[in-house]
Design a protein around this nucleic acid. Structure first.
Lengths: 222, 222
DNA sequence: AACGAAACATAACGCGTGTTATACAAAAGA
DNA sequence: TCTTTTGTATAACACGCGTTATGTTTCGTT
C-alpha cells in the first residue's frame, strides 16, 4: 500500500474547504473546481475523496453541524435555564460575519433542497434537530420554574424558529439588514411577550442583581 | 409598419408565463427556453420582447406584485382595522397551492439576489413596501383604538414580517410544513401576545357579536 | 531495484445555459 | 405588386458545470 495519507483527515480538509466556500460565495459558488482550489488541490484530487456533488454538500453540512452544535450545547448547559434559552437563540442569529456565513450556508441548502432529494432529507433532519433543541430549552426553563406551566411548547418553538429564520432572511436577503442589536431585541421581546417569564432576566447592567451564575457572554457587537 | 401585434400585451403574456413557470418549477426552472415554451413560443420570440434574463425576472416580479397587491389592498380597507391587519397577514401565508407558488417565487428571488444587483435592488424595494404595509396596518389598528398606544410599531412590523418569512421557510423548505391552520394560529397568537389588542377579535363563530362591519371572509381553508 | 497501487494533475466529454446570428413569414405602406 | 419592417423560428456560439478518462507522481511492499 502506497502513499500513506490519512484518508479521513484529508476528507475533512475538503469538507472544511467546501464549508468555507459556501459561506463566502454561497452554494452556487461552491463548484467542484472552486472547492478543490480552496483546499489547495485540483478536481482530480477532490473526486478521489468524494464521488458526487450531492455527497459533497451533504458531508459539508455534517461538518458544519458539528461546529455549531458544540457552541450550542455549551450554552444549553448553563445553570440558568432561561438564560440558556436566550443564549442559544442568540447563537442562532446572523450577528457577525461568521454567523452570517453560516446562514448563507443554510439558505444555500434550502435552495438546493428544491432540487435534490438527498439534500432535502438532510435539511429536514437538521430542522427537526433545531426544533427539538428549542423545544427542549423552553421545556427546561419551564421545568425550572422560570416560565408559566401552561406554555404551549410546540407552538412556541415553532414561533421562535420562524422568527429567527425570518430575522436571518431579512438580514441576508432583504437589503434592509437588522443590526445585531435589533436582532437581539427582537429575541428578547419575543421571550418577554410570548413566554411571559416569571422572573426578570438578561442582566440590564444597572438593574440585574440576580444570585445565579450570570456573566453570560454578551457575544458579538455590531 | 408591419404585423400589428400589441407589443405591451404580448410582453405581459411572456411575463405571466415566467411567473407561472417560477411558481411551478422554481427560479432555476425558469430558463429562457422553458418560459418561451410555456408561453407557446420559442426563445427567438421571447428575446424579441426582453433582452436579458435579469430584465425578465425583474419584470416578472413586477407582474406578480400587481397581482398580490390588489388582494392586499382590498383587505387593508376593511372597516375593522384589527381584522384588516389579521386578514392581510393571512393573505401572506403559504396556505394553499397558489400562495405556496407565490412564496416559491419570492424565495427564488431571494436566492437570485445574491447574484444579481438588479434583482437585489428589486427585492429590497418589495421588502420595504411590505414592511411599510404591515407598519401602516398596525398603526391604523392602534389609531382606531384597538391596540395600546405605546406599541412599538417599527419593531412589531419587523417581528411579524420575520415570523411570516419563517413560517414560509418552514413550510416550503424545512420538510416539516406547517398546516394552514397552524400558520393562522401562529399569526393569531402573535397578534394576541405581541400587540395585546384591547378588544376581542377574530369572530370565533359563537362569541362574536361586535357592532362593526364584520363578515370578513375567512379566506382559504386547508 | 522493481513493481504496483494510491494520490494527485490535466484534459476532455456531454450537457444545459444565456445570448447572438441568421433565415423565413407576414402584413402595412408605397 | 413590391418593398420594408416587424414577428417568429432555427441554429449556432461561448461558457461553466459535473463528471469521466487518462496520464503522472509518489512511496510502501516485495
Amino acid at each position: 500500500m502506497p502513499k500513506k495519507v490519512d484518508h479521513k483527515l484529508r476528507r475533512e480538509a475538503f469538507m472544511a474547504a467546501a464549508y468555507r466556500m459556501i459561506k463566502k460565495r454561497g452554494i452556487s459558488g461552491a463548484t467542484f473546481r472552486a472547492v478543490a482550489k480552496e483546499a489547495g488541490y485540483t478536481t482530480g484530487a477532490l473526486v478521489h475523496y468524494v464521488d458526487s456533488m450531492d455527497k459533497l454538500l451533504v458531508e459539508a453540512s455534517e461538518f458544519s453541524a458539528r461546529e455549531v452544535r458544540a457552541d450550542m450545547e455549551k450554552a444549553e448547559n448553563l445553570p440558568d435555564k432561561l438564560e440558556a434559552l436566550r443564549q442559544v437563540l442568540y447563537l442562532a442569529l446572523p450577528s457577525d460575519e461568521d454567523k452570517r456565513g453560516n446562514w448563507n450556508f443554510f439558505l444555500g441548502f434550502w435552495e438546493r433542497s428544491a432540487l435534490s432529494a438527498d439534500v432535502r432529507h438532510l435539511t429536514h433532519l437538521r430542522y427537526v434537530e433545531w426544533l427539538k433543541r428549542t423545544a427542549r430549552l423552553i421545556r427546561n426553563a419551564r421545568n425550572a420554574g422560570d416560565l408559566p406551566k401552561d406554555v404551549d411548547i410546540k407552538k412556541a418553538s415553532r414561533a421562535c424558529v420562524a422568527l429567527i429564520d425570518g430575522i436571518a432572511t431579512q438580514t441576508l436577503r432583504s437589503g434592509s439588514p437588522l443590526t445585531p442589536k435589533a436582532q437581539r431585541e427582537l429575541i428578547d421581546a419575543w421571550i418577554a411577550l410570548w413566554l411571559k417569564p416569571l422572573r426578570k432576566f438578561g442582566a440590564k447592567r444597572a438593574t440585574a442583581r440576580r444570585g445565579k451564575g450570570d456573566g453570560a457572554a454578551h457575544a458579538a457587537h455590531s
